[in-house]
């Protein structure tokens, strides 16, 4: 922000001569009211977009056909109530959830967490206070650091309490990445990129990282009795 003064303050007791006005100058314009740049280049949909769509479709089909030619969909023996496989695994996209189920009590892992995630995802557009997405360390870095670190620390302890190392450790990693711009003042591309990420983006990154990790663990690292195995 520039420190250059754009206006002067007149002070007088005579209100008629110098009428007092209150001017509220927002620091930034909300995105909602930002006009689309009028000078952006427009092209005809046909053929510019249509051709891209067709190519995209063709590529999708080609890739699918090739995968289908070389990899067969799994088919095991007929379902048998008596024969419980160990472990019984959900489809891969629910394995993260199953991993959570192993860590937390079922009501928490099976109902509460998915519900919270869903709600969190839904409310993102309505609760995004930091609409401009300024980086995490832009304002009051010290205060941010204390609050951020202590809340992560509490969360970390909670996870350790539940023996949820598969969540605690990735959380720690993300935390280290998130606070690195606070400590490392050196300018480089990587640090700059990290410094630009807002809190919301950090949370999302953490969420994606943890869920992908849990899915990978559930898929490849869990054997009989949901014990840790190497693939």
């Amino acid at each position: 922000m520039t420190n250059e003064k754009q206006f002067e303050i007149e002070i007088s007791t005579d209100s008629k001569e110098v009428p007092q006005r209150l001017a509220i100058i927002p620091e930034r314009t909300p995105v909602k009211y930002e006009l689309e740049k009028p000078d952006e280049k427009l092209v005809m949909t046909f053929p510019n977009l249509i051709i891209r769509e067709v190519i995209c479709f063709q590529l999708v089909v080609i890739v699918l056909a090739l995968i289908s030619l070389f990899f067969d969909a799994p088919l095991e023996e007929l379902a048998n109530l008596q024969n419980t496989p160990n472990p019984a695994k959900a489809p891969w996209y629910f394995l993260g959830l199953q991993e959570l189920l192993h860590i937390f009590p079922p009501v928490v892992a099976g109902v509460l967490i998915p519900l919270l995630v869903l709600i969190a995802l839904i409310v993102i557009p309505y609760f995004d206070i930091n609409i401009k997405r300024s980086g995490l360390w832009n304002d009051q870095p010290k205060k941010t650091f204390v609050i951020f670190s202590s809340s992560i620390f509490l969360f970390f302890l909670l996870m350790i309490f539940f023996d949820a190392f598969s969540i605690a450790i990735p959380t720690l990693l993300i935390y280290i990445l998130a606070v690195s711009p606070y400590f490392i003042k050196k300018e480089n591309v990587f640090i700059n990129a990290l410094a630009h990420l807002s809190l919301a983006e950090w949370i999302m990154t953490w969420f994606v990282f943890v869920s992908v990790l849990l899915i990978i663990i559930g898929t490849y690292f869990r054997g009989p009795g949901w014990n840790w195995v190497w693939p």
Binding site: P74, L75, E76, E77, L78, A79, N80, L81, N83, T84, P85, A88, K89, A90, P91, F94, L97, Q98, L101, P106, V107, G110, V111
Partner: peptide
């Protein structure tokens, strides 16, 4: 769709999933 082949894989995957449902308060 996972259940439809009705093999061991689908049966138990769906069993695991639907067992979670019963924890809904």
């Amino acid at each position: 769709g996972y259940l439809l082949p009705y093999d061991q894989l689908s049966y138990w995957a769906v069993t695991v999933g639907t067992n979670i449902v019963q924890y809904i308060p």
